[in-house]
Protein backbone atom coordinates (compact mmCIF):
# COMPACT_ATOMS: atom_id res chain seq x y z
CA UNK A 1 0.00 0.00 0.00
CA UNK A 2 1.37 3.41 -0.98
CA UNK A 3 -0.05 5.27 2.02
CA UNK A 4 -1.90 3.33 4.74
CA UNK A 5 -4.90 4.89 6.46
CA UNK A 6 -4.40 6.43 9.90
CA UNK A 7 -6.61 3.95 11.75
CA UNK A 8 -4.56 1.07 10.37
CA UNK A 9 -1.35 2.74 11.54
CA UNK A 10 -2.76 3.44 14.99
CA UNK A 11 -4.06 -0.10 15.42
CA UNK A 12 -0.72 -1.52 14.35
CA UNK A 13 1.05 0.95 16.63
CA UNK A 14 -0.92 -0.18 19.67
CA UNK A 15 -0.50 -3.83 18.69
CA UNK A 16 3.28 -3.58 18.36
CA UNK A 17 3.63 -1.87 21.71
CA UNK A 18 3.41 -5.35 23.19
CA UNK A 19 4.05 -7.58 20.16
CA UNK A 20 7.42 -8.23 18.61
CA UNK A 21 8.78 -6.64 15.45
CA UNK A 22 11.96 -8.56 14.79
CA UNK A 23 13.59 -9.28 18.13
CA UNK A 24 11.62 -6.90 20.35
CA UNK A 25 8.31 -5.09 20.63
CA UNK A 26 7.98 -1.37 19.78
CA UNK A 27 8.36 -0.25 23.40
CA UNK A 28 11.66 -2.09 23.73
CA UNK A 29 12.91 -0.76 20.39
CA UNK A 30 12.17 2.78 21.50
CA UNK A 31 13.85 2.19 24.84
CA UNK A 32 16.92 0.89 23.01
CA UNK A 33 17.13 4.14 21.03
CA UNK A 34 16.56 6.19 24.17
CA UNK A 35 19.30 4.35 26.02
CA UNK A 36 21.74 5.15 23.22
CA UNK A 37 20.75 8.80 23.30
CA UNK A 38 21.08 8.84 27.08
CA UNK A 39 24.65 7.55 26.88
CA UNK A 40 25.76 9.61 23.87
CA UNK A 41 24.02 12.81 24.94
CA UNK A 42 25.09 12.35 28.54
CA UNK A 43 28.72 12.08 27.48
CA UNK A 44 28.55 15.01 25.07
CA UNK A 45 26.78 17.23 27.65
CA UNK A 46 29.20 16.47 30.41
CA UNK A 47 32.37 16.84 28.36
CA UNK A 48 30.93 19.69 26.28
CA UNK A 49 29.99 21.78 29.30
CA UNK A 50 33.35 21.16 30.98
CA UNK A 51 35.32 21.98 27.83
CA UNK A 52 33.20 25.01 26.92
CA UNK A 53 33.32 26.50 30.40
CA UNK A 54 37.06 25.83 30.62
CA UNK A 55 37.58 27.56 27.26
CA UNK A 56 35.57 30.52 28.45
CA UNK A 57 37.33 30.71 31.77
CA UNK A 58 40.90 30.27 30.61
CA UNK A 59 42.34 32.05 27.60
CA UNK A 60 45.16 29.53 27.42
CA UNK A 61 42.81 26.57 27.13
CA UNK A 62 40.81 28.46 24.54
CA UNK A 63 43.95 29.22 22.51
CA UNK A 64 44.95 25.54 22.51
CA UNK A 65 41.58 23.95 21.82
CA UNK A 66 39.91 26.57 19.62
CA UNK A 67 41.78 25.85 16.33
CA UNK A 68 41.12 22.12 16.58
CA UNK A 69 37.56 22.77 17.52
CA UNK A 70 36.98 25.15 14.63
CA UNK A 71 37.96 22.40 12.18
CA UNK A 72 35.65 19.82 13.72
CA UNK A 73 32.71 22.13 14.37
CA UNK A 74 31.26 22.50 10.84
CA UNK A 75 31.25 18.73 10.24
CA UNK A 76 27.73 17.40 10.90
CA UNK A 77 27.51 14.47 13.29
CA UNK A 78 26.23 12.21 10.53
CA UNK A 79 29.37 12.71 8.45
CA UNK A 80 31.25 10.77 11.11
CA UNK A 81 29.27 7.57 10.45
CA UNK A 82 31.65 5.94 7.92
CA UNK A 83 34.71 6.74 9.98
CA UNK A 84 33.00 5.61 13.16
CA UNK A 85 32.11 2.25 11.62
CA UNK A 86 35.71 1.72 10.47
CA UNK A 87 37.04 2.72 13.88
CA UNK A 88 34.59 1.02 16.20
CA UNK A 89 32.82 -1.58 14.05
CA UNK A 90 29.04 -1.77 14.03
CA UNK A 91 28.53 -2.14 17.77
CA UNK A 92 27.14 0.25 20.35
CA UNK A 93 30.29 2.35 20.55
CA UNK A 94 29.75 3.55 17.01
CA UNK A 95 26.26 4.75 17.84
CA UNK A 96 27.37 6.47 21.00
CA UNK A 97 30.13 8.16 19.05
CA UNK A 98 27.80 9.42 16.33
CA UNK A 99 25.34 10.79 18.88
CA UNK A 100 28.20 12.34 20.78
CA UNK A 101 29.53 14.11 17.71
CA UNK A 102 26.04 15.28 16.81
CA UNK A 103 25.58 17.29 19.97
CA UNK A 104 29.06 18.07 21.21
CA UNK A 105 29.97 21.21 19.23
CA UNK A 106 26.78 23.01 20.10
CA UNK A 107 27.13 22.40 23.81
CA UNK A 108 30.75 23.54 23.81
CA UNK A 109 29.96 26.74 21.94
CA UNK A 110 27.01 27.66 24.14
CA UNK A 111 28.88 26.91 27.35
CA UNK A 112 31.77 29.00 26.09
CA UNK A 113 29.47 31.91 25.20
CA UNK A 114 27.73 31.79 28.54
CA UNK A 115 31.00 31.82 30.43
CA UNK A 116 32.52 34.64 28.40
CA UNK A 117 29.44 36.83 28.58
CA UNK A 118 29.37 37.05 32.36
CA UNK A 119 28.73 40.63 33.39
CA UNK A 120 32.05 41.94 34.78
CA UNK A 121 30.14 44.27 37.11
CA UNK A 122 28.58 41.25 38.82
CA UNK A 123 32.00 39.66 39.13
CA UNK A 124 33.35 42.84 40.74
CA UNK A 125 30.34 43.02 43.05
CA UNK A 126 30.94 39.46 44.21
CA UNK A 127 34.62 40.18 44.89
CA UNK A 128 33.73 43.31 46.87
CA UNK A 129 31.42 41.14 48.94
CA UNK A 130 34.34 38.92 49.77
CA UNK A 131 34.08 36.10 47.23
CA UNK A 132 37.35 34.40 46.24
CA UNK A 133 38.17 33.00 42.77
CA UNK A 134 36.51 29.65 43.40
CA UNK A 135 33.40 31.28 44.84
CA UNK A 136 33.19 33.72 41.93
CA UNK A 137 33.31 30.74 39.57
CA UNK A 138 30.60 28.73 41.28
CA UNK A 139 28.37 31.57 42.48
CA UNK A 140 28.63 34.02 39.58
CA UNK A 141 30.11 32.56 36.41
CA UNK A 142 28.34 29.20 36.41
CA UNK A 143 24.86 30.44 37.32
CA UNK A 144 24.98 33.26 34.81
CA UNK A 145 26.06 30.77 32.11
CA UNK A 146 23.18 28.39 32.87
CA UNK A 147 20.72 29.90 30.43
CA UNK A 148 23.23 29.68 27.59
CA UNK A 149 24.24 26.15 28.51
CA UNK A 150 20.62 25.11 28.58
CA UNK A 151 19.95 26.55 25.15
CA UNK A 152 22.83 24.43 23.89
CA UNK A 153 21.55 21.31 25.61
CA UNK A 154 18.10 21.73 24.12
CA UNK A 155 19.38 21.94 20.56
CA UNK A 156 21.84 19.12 21.13
CA UNK A 157 19.25 16.78 22.54
CA UNK A 158 17.17 17.05 19.39
CA UNK A 159 20.21 16.56 17.16
CA UNK A 160 21.16 13.57 19.31
CA UNK A 161 17.75 12.07 18.72
CA UNK A 162 18.23 12.58 14.97
CA UNK A 163 21.69 11.06 15.11
CA UNK A 164 20.56 7.89 16.85
CA UNK A 165 17.95 7.25 14.16
CA UNK A 166 20.51 7.69 11.40
CA UNK A 167 22.95 5.41 13.18
CA UNK A 168 20.29 2.75 13.66
CA UNK A 169 19.13 2.91 10.06
CA UNK A 170 22.64 2.14 8.90
CA UNK A 171 23.68 -0.65 11.20
CA UNK A 172 21.50 -2.07 13.91
CA UNK A 173 19.24 -4.94 14.92
CA UNK A 174 17.01 -2.92 17.18
CA UNK A 175 15.78 0.63 17.81
CA UNK A 176 13.29 3.05 16.28
CA UNK A 177 15.60 3.71 13.35
CA UNK A 178 15.84 0.01 12.65
CA UNK A 179 12.03 -0.22 12.52
CA UNK A 180 11.59 2.32 9.75
CA UNK A 181 14.51 0.86 7.86
CA UNK A 182 12.94 -2.60 8.20
CA UNK A 183 9.66 -1.19 6.91
CA UNK A 184 11.46 0.15 3.86
CA UNK A 185 13.21 -3.14 3.13
CA UNK A 186 10.01 -5.17 3.39
CA UNK A 187 7.86 -2.59 1.60
CA UNK A 188 5.70 -2.23 4.72
CA UNK A 189 4.59 1.42 4.77
CA UNK A 190 2.45 0.83 7.86
CA UNK A 191 5.52 -0.27 9.78
CA UNK A 192 7.46 2.80 8.59
CA UNK A 193 4.69 5.07 9.82
CA UNK A 194 4.45 3.24 13.13
CA UNK A 195 8.16 3.91 13.58
CA UNK A 196 7.72 7.54 12.62
CA UNK A 197 4.88 7.99 15.10
CA UNK A 198 7.04 6.52 17.86
CA UNK A 199 9.90 8.85 16.88
CA UNK A 200 7.60 11.86 16.92
CA UNK A 201 6.19 11.03 20.34
CA UNK A 202 9.63 10.55 21.87
CA UNK A 203 10.96 13.74 20.26
CA UNK A 204 8.01 15.67 21.63
CA UNK A 205 8.47 14.24 25.11
CA UNK A 206 12.21 14.96 25.15
CA UNK A 207 11.69 18.58 24.16
CA UNK A 208 9.12 19.02 26.89
CA UNK A 209 11.24 17.41 29.55
CA UNK A 210 13.99 19.87 28.69
CA UNK A 211 11.55 22.75 28.89
CA UNK A 212 10.36 21.68 32.33
CA UNK A 213 13.96 21.26 33.49
CA UNK A 214 14.79 24.72 32.20
CA UNK A 215 11.83 26.21 33.99
CA UNK A 216 13.10 24.69 37.19
CA UNK A 217 16.76 25.64 36.80
CA UNK A 218 16.35 29.07 35.23
CA UNK A 219 13.26 30.27 37.02
CA UNK A 220 14.96 33.60 37.69
CA UNK A 221 14.89 34.68 34.04
CA UNK A 222 11.87 36.39 32.59
CA UNK A 223 11.58 33.64 30.03
CA UNK A 224 11.56 30.88 32.58
CA UNK A 225 9.13 32.65 34.83
Amino acid sequence: MFFPNPIEVLTYFVHTLTHKIGKYNLTMHTLFSLKRVAVGFGLSSLSGIILGVAMGYSKTINAIVRPLFNIIRPIPGLAWIPLAILWFGIGETTKYFIIFMGGFANIVLNSYDGTVKVNPVLEGAARLLGANDVQVFFHVILPSATTYIFAGLQVSLSTSWMAVLAAEMISSYEGAGWIINMGMQTGDTTLILVGMVAIAIVGFLLANIMRILERGLCSWTIRGR
Binding site: N119, V121, G124, L128, P143, S144, T146, W220, T221
Partner: peptide
Protein backbone atom coordinates in the same frame (compact mmCIF):
# COMPACT_ATOMS: atom_id res chain seq x y z
CA UNK B 1 30.90 48.06 49.81
CA UNK B 2 29.41 49.33 46.59
CA UNK B 3 25.91 50.33 45.54
CA UNK B 4 25.78 50.45 41.78
CA UNK B 5 24.26 52.80 39.23
CA UNK B 6 22.44 50.00 37.44
CA UNK B 7 21.53 47.50 40.08
CA UNK B 8 24.22 44.85 40.00
CA UNK B 9 22.08 42.27 41.76
CA UNK B 10 22.59 38.59 41.06
CA UNK B 11 19.46 37.84 39.04
CA UNK B 12 19.55 34.12 39.84
Amino acid sequence: GMVYQTTALFPW
